[in-house]
Every structure is written in C-alpha cells, then in structure tokens.
Design a protein around this nucleic acid. Structure first.
Lengths: 83, 83
DNA sequence: TCAGCTTACGTTCTGCGTAAACATT
DNA sequence: AATGTTTACGCAGAACGTAAGCTGA
C-alpha cells in the first residue's frame, strides 16, 4: 500500500496495485490516521514523502521482503515434497 | 494468526487473540488454502505444527517483529515532534 | 482550466460469532 | 460422553468503484 506510493503519485501507483485511485487514497488516509502521522505532503504535482514517510517506506520494504521470503520458503518446500 | 497457534491448541489460542475459536480455525484453514500446504496436523489433543508449519512459524515471528519495529519507529518519531 | 487528491455513496466481499455437526478416545 | 476442530449461516464492518467535489498553478 505505502510501498506503491513510492512512485511519487497516488494516481500513478494505481496501475501497479490494480485498484482505483480513490480506493488507494482511502487506504493511504486510513494508514495515516492509524499511525497518527502524515506520510506524504500533497502538492499540485503528485505527493512527496514526509520524514515519517521515509522511515515508514524503509520499514515497509523490509516487511514486504520478509513476507516474500516466507512465501518462497514454503513454495520451495512444497516443490521438494511433490518431487 | 499463525503466530498465535504456536500455543499448541487452536481453542487455547483464542484467549490471546480475543476472537472465537471457529473464527480462528477459519483463518487457519484459509491460510493453509492460500499457501497450498497444511501447517498443522490435527489430532485429538490439539494440533501440532507440520514441517511447513515450523518454517512458517519462524518467518511469521520475523515478520511480526519487523512490523512492531516499524510501529515503534514512527511512534518515537511522533514523540520527538510533539516534544 | 487542468491535473491530481479527496469525499460521498451505494454495492460487494470479507470476517466474526452463535449454533450445530463431526471426529477421536 | 467429552474434548477439540470444522461447517453452516446470518450479519456487521471494511474495501472497492463510480461519480462528484475540491485545490492550487
């Protein structure tokens, strides 16, 4: 969700996530409410990350990497079983 | 979700997660369908993790730790701002 | 006026809880 | 019979998409 907004535009990010732009905006707003901090500053030419947004981006990448790692771990374990 | 089932019983885990036992069972089944692998073997005295369950457990802990780390990072960043 | 984010609103889907069923000893 | 997991089912809340609104250059 946030990781996608790293493209610089909320609207531009939609083609990566395959959801509509308002929905993505809602997700972002919800996350910001949840964290109690603004992740991006809105301006007329897309958005740019705040300080908090930057640290969050870093953590988000790590989390997603970890998830992907887990997914691949069970995947390769699956193949070993079926072979 | 999975991390809670590390208590050994699906039913016993409910008091940690504060959701009903059927709901937790559903989550577990859904995750197993999603991964295409059984995470636990069911027997008459609770459940015990399969091989896949064990590796998943390991990854799940890392992921949750990472999430917690992120949450605390923005938290401390918030406090710095307000002070 | 234009580009891009946000709000409104109705619909669809997901997740939970209660209740009932199934399985194993 | 008893313990523990799963299925059925109805409902509340969340998420999405379409459409309309808002804002700054």
């Amino acid at each position: 969700m946030l990781a996608i907004a790293e493209v610089g535009h909320v609207g531009r990010a939609t083609q990566r996530v395959h959801i509509s732009q308002p929905a993505l905006s809602q997700q972002l707003c919800k996350l910001e409410r949840e964290l109690g901090v603004a992740l991006f500053t809105r301006h007329h030419r897309g958005v740019s990350p705040t300080e908090a947004g930057l640290v969050m981006l870093d953590h988000a990448r790590k989390i997603l990497d970890q998830v992907e790692e887990a997914r691949q771990a069970i995947e390769s374990l699956n193949e070993a079983k079926t072979s």
